[in-house]
Design a protein around this nucleic acid. Structure first.
Lengths: 151, 151
DNA sequence: TCAATATTATTAACATGTTAAATATAAAAG
DNA sequence: CTTTTATATTTAACATGTTAATAATATTGA
């Protein structure tokens, strides 16, 4: 948003910037939909993880939703104030919590999943399944590279 | 950072998350280097744009460094307090400013550009030039897709 | 000219990213 | 058993992302 001109710059060959722009392109419509639903992209990720996986503790949620724990702490507070999740103490380990999605949270997902799927379908159709898979393969391969930390 | 385990999850096929992880993989070492230099990734982007392009106004900087203007406003304030940039009023249009990099800013770039280049070289060598180009092509193509806004 | 409109930049308000420190509890070492 | 160490989560502090509103100046058009 705010950068939709033709872009004849040299930053096209900068991987960090290209990743940034691609993410914005993909997330823009999704963020737009979610703002109508009253949740952010990250809150949506947390809700979907909880919906798919059931009860989890915050560390597991952070790992699966690609959020850092300090961010997740605040997000869980927000989701709780919106009554979209439930928190219970862990029965044996008092350091842990057990987080699960609430009925309202599940309903929010139901209300928006169809449109979310449509956006995915649009991407697959317009961009192409083969190219999408190729892109995902490259991204995953990049992510799994090992770094011989030179320190 | 904080998610470097083998990742056998299904989120590997989610484009938004894959883009997020790839960006983290690429930016992690760079952020690490820059924190030693006392600047953030975004401040570094602004300094490099100014170094390459000369004097620019904030709108142009925002466009070229992929930042939104409100973010840039704060970043310019920070960079000015660090004496890494210079601000002057525009001679004819009093709404505009003219931002340029300072001597200290240019020196900061000189001091870190070599290591930055080494990280790029490492990526090209380990990941491979051909795959890197293929990835950049796919990302740019994705970015240039048009969206028939269904609203 | 002057009122309406557009442009440039900032501010405000809230959410998240990021690193370090703090807190509470659990597990391990002695 | 208790001192040490590790784990789980939160808090703190600062920077940025994001949208809306604001302020100042420029431009346009009646």
């Amino acid at each position: 948003m705010g950068m939709n001109q033709p872009r004849p710059t040299e930053t096209n060959r900068s991987l960090p910037i290209a990743l940034l722009r691609a993410r914005e392109k993909v997330m823009g419509p999704i963020r737009n939909m979610l703002s109508n639903a009253g949740v952010t992209e990250q809150q949506w990720r947390v809700l979907r993880v909880l919906d798919e996986m059931g009860t989890l503790d915050p560390t597991e949620i952070a790992d699966r939703s690609c959020l850092l724990l300090p961010s997740l702490t605040r997000i869980l507070q927000t989701l709780q104030s919106k009554q979209l999740i439930l928190r219970e103490p862990h029965p044996t380990d008092r350091r842990k919590q057990q987080i699960s999605i609430s009925k309202a949270g599940r309903q929010l997902i139901l209300d928006n999943m169809e449109e979310s799927q449509q956006l995915t379908t649009w991407l697959e159709d317009e961009f192409g399944q083969d190219k999408l898979n190729a892109l995902l393969d490259l991204l995953n391969e990049l992510d799994q590279m090992e770094r011989h930390t030179p320190s």
